[in-house]
Amino acid sequence: MNELQFLTWVRGPGLDIAVGIFVLGVLWRLFEIYSLGRKKDLAAPRHAAGASGLHTVFRRSIPPPGGVKRSPVSYIGGYIFHIGLAIVVFGFAPHILLIKNLTGLSWPGLPSQFIDLAAVVTMAAMVVVLVDRINKPVKRFLSTFGDWFTWTVTFLPVLTGWLAVQHLLLPYTTMLALHILSVEILLIVLPFTKLFHAFTLFGSRWYNGKVNGQRGVPV
């Protein structure tokens, strides 16, 4: 298999398989999680300002008082790499083209120099977050295989994409194929690892906010 055949495979059958498993996994998990249901709270609801599902969805996006000072790397690094990922994934013209092809949705792209900068910043933030996880004994103790694994599968698409655009290490064709392959791996593992928070994040925040709001506690 030469590199163009490799690229054609990852763009064709490979993508087909990855998207298939992704869609299957996401629907499976969503149905499973949301069909669990919760017991009805029979206590009379208490009302307090700022205590509701919607409030919590937004409030949890802001660090709690003193949080940034206590663990600056987690908050600042986390913010930077999440926003960076969003810019790179949804702002780069070829990515938008893919989304348009798959879903029909389209929007204008950002200049590639800006995407390039965002990718470098994202990778730097991810490396800092990883080093922090290794250096802090408590974080290291709490980390499981899943944490290291998901970091790797998230980092690889950014790295290979950036290397491809910059023409580094390997010929562009090979690097582009590796980039697409790494994204396919990410798609496949996403529904079955903690990366599924991309889908459950707001739902669980809403749930927590609502349960506590019922008791009159803004969380």
Binding site: L7, T8, R11, G12, P13, L15, D16, I17, V19, G20, I21, F22, V23, L24, G25, V26, L27, W28, R29, L30, F31, E32, S35, L36, P94, H95, L97, L98, N101, L102, L176
Partner: peptide, 28 residues
């Protein structure tokens, strides 16, 4: 077809959605 879009039409997408939803419902 632009280099960044699928080389072939995605065939498994709809089937995967049905199987995934089915699996989810069964598990629930």
């Amino acid at each position: 077809k632009a280099l960044s879009v699928p080389a072939d039409p995605l065939e498994f997408g709809a089937a995967a959605a049905v199987v995934g939803a089915g699996a989810g419902v069964a598990v629930s």
